[in-house]
Structures are given as structure tokens and as C-alpha cells.
Nucleic acid binder design. Structure first.
Lengths: 146, 146
DNA sequence: TAAAAATTTAAAATAATTTTTATTTGTTGA
DNA sequence: TCAACAAATAAAAATTATTTTAAATTTTTA
């Protein structure tokens, strides 16, 4: 958590921006209270604790956190963006249950090798990848609501 | 193309829906003129040829085409949904260039094996997957505009 | 052909996100 | 210290993609 703050602070400063109380508060909430989250949730969580920041500031700050590599966007098929921690978590992929919305994380070193192999073949310089499997989790198999 | 129409017609009828001229026209444009496309493009293309259908109808029809397995949604990191043909194309994954937006398709049988292995391990019933690599294509490496 | 059902259009509504505008805060230097 | 400049904020308005609504039209069926 403190180290995440260092990374953010450093990024902020390198861009000639300011490490404002709002940015600090958002960073704290992002890294103390959530795994995957959405902007709306974060806002709600902060409001609940009487920490008042505007929605626009959250959107702008989260964008900064993505840019400096602390967060990444994850798209689960809903209309709004989900975010997850990059800092302090090893890279992983997702299983998304269409029944109950549950997210199961998994990782496998073979995926990176794969990526490299494919990129070499296509003369492509990879920056990131996303592997996502959609289907039904154990509990939802059988009573498939969709 | 004709076969795609058969699939659609069959689906439509199996659901007790109607194979209207609008639906037929949209199907034709989807399968004659496009690889990847967006609703807005499709609308534009049809208007250009004086084929008049409302945007709402396109959205509704495209959703039907997804449901019956002729199309699938692909998310490239933009705010609007992209669609691609499933019918007549084998399954593939995407390399998305952040520089110029180019999409390179690739496929590899190992990915399906992988999926199955991971799903068994997690007691998950897969329905679909998506593997996408973001980065820079040959031409864009060097002059990285982002 | 009349009545019911489904579909269409166009406009309004919605949802997520971005932009604008006026205000606030922080900093700088005379 | 205080004007003046830059950056950041809140709140509201704007935007974009998509969905819904309501009214009109088409199709099907009895």
C-alpha cells in the first residue's frame, strides 16, 4: 500500500502534476478496500465513509492509476469498466460466470510463452494481453440462467 | 451467404419470430460487405445504398444474429461493440495495434486445449473464450503514437 | 376482413463516461 | 504580503452507445 503510493507519487511528479488530497484518498480506497471494482462502487464506498470527491475526479484519477501501471482495466461483458490491482498481484486471467457473475482468477506461465511465440510470428510488439473464458461455474451449471 | 440466411431463418422461425424484409436486408449487409464492423458502420453502409432501416432495428437484429451464433461480439478497447462473422470463419483470436488500430487475426489449436484444461481444474463449464493481445504492429513500432 | 400479434420507426430515456465552467487551492515572485 | 498564474476540483452539462417507449405499420390468423 505504501509502496503503491510511492509509485503513484513518483508518476504524478514525473508528469509535473500534484499529489492532491483527493488523489491520495482515491488511491487509498482503491488499494485498501477492493479487489475488482467499478467507479460507481468506489464512489459509494468513499461516500459511505464521508470522504467526498466528485465522480469526475475519480474517473480522472483512476485513469492516472492505469497509466502508471498500478491498475488495469478488465472488461467482463458489462457496459461499465472494471478495474483490478496490478501492483501487488501477479498477472492472471479470468473465468467469468454468466450465471452468477462470479470471477475466478487463474494464471499459467504458458500463456506468456504463447503470446511471445505468436507475436514473433506476426511481427507484433506485445504490451499486454487478456485471456478470458466465459461460461458457468460449478454452482450455476444445471440452473443456467442467462 | 445463402446458408447464413438459412441459419437465421431457422432460428427466427424456431422462436416464432418473423423473417421481415428489414431483417433480411441487415443480414445481407452483414454478410456481404463486412469483416469486423460496428453498428454505426453498418447503418452508414445501408444508408449509402438507400436501404432504410432504423438504428434500433439494426441493434435488435444484430443481437439476434449473435444469439443464433452467426456473429459474435468482439471488444477492442473502444466504447462501442465490434462484431465479427462466426459463420464461415474458423475461430480465431486478435492482435490489436494501439498505434493504427489494425486487427491481426490468429488461431492456434493449443488455446482450446488450454481452455479445457483450465476449466476442468476450476470446475467451470466454458461457453466461449477470448484471447487478445494489445501492442504495436510492425509499421507502428518505432513511431509509437498512443 | 377484423382482430391479435409482432415489428418497425423515431423519439425519448438511460448509463457510463467525458467535458465544460466557474471556483478553489497552491505556488511564485515582486 | 499580495497579486497573478497554473493546476485541480466540484457540479453540471454534454456526449456516446445503446435500449426502451409509444405510436404506427405490417403480418398472420381466425
Amino acid at each position: 500500500m505504501d509502496e503503491a503510493e510511492d509509485v503513484f507519487r513518483e508518476y504524478i511528479q514525473s508528469k509535473g502534476l500534484k499529489f492532491t488530497p483527493e488523489r491520495k484518498a482515491i488511491l487509498n480506497y482503491v488499494f485498501e478496500n477492493h479487489g475488482h471494482f467499478e467507479v460507481e462502487e468506489l464512489l459509494f464506498e468513499m461516500r459511505k465513509n464521508k470522504v467526498r470527491v466528485s465522480k469526475a475526479t475519480i474517473y480522472r484519477t483512476v485513469a492516472l492509476l492505469v497509466k502508471c501501471g498500478l491498475l488495469r482495466e478488465v472488461i467482463f461483458g458489462e457496459k461499465h469498466t472494471h478495474y483490478e490491482h496490478v501492483y501487488g498481484h501477479e498477472h492472471h486471467e479470468h473465468l467469468v460466470c454468466s450465471g452468477c457473475g462470479k470471477i475466478i482468477e487463474f494464471s499459467d506461465e504458458r500463456i506468456e510463452k504463447f503470446q511471445d511465440e505468436i507475436c514473433v510470428k506476426n511481427m507484433f510488439k506485445p504490451e499486454s494481453h487478456r485471456f478470458q473464458i466465459t461460461g458457468y461455474c460449478e454452482e450455476c451449471v444445471g440452473g443456467k440462467s442467462k
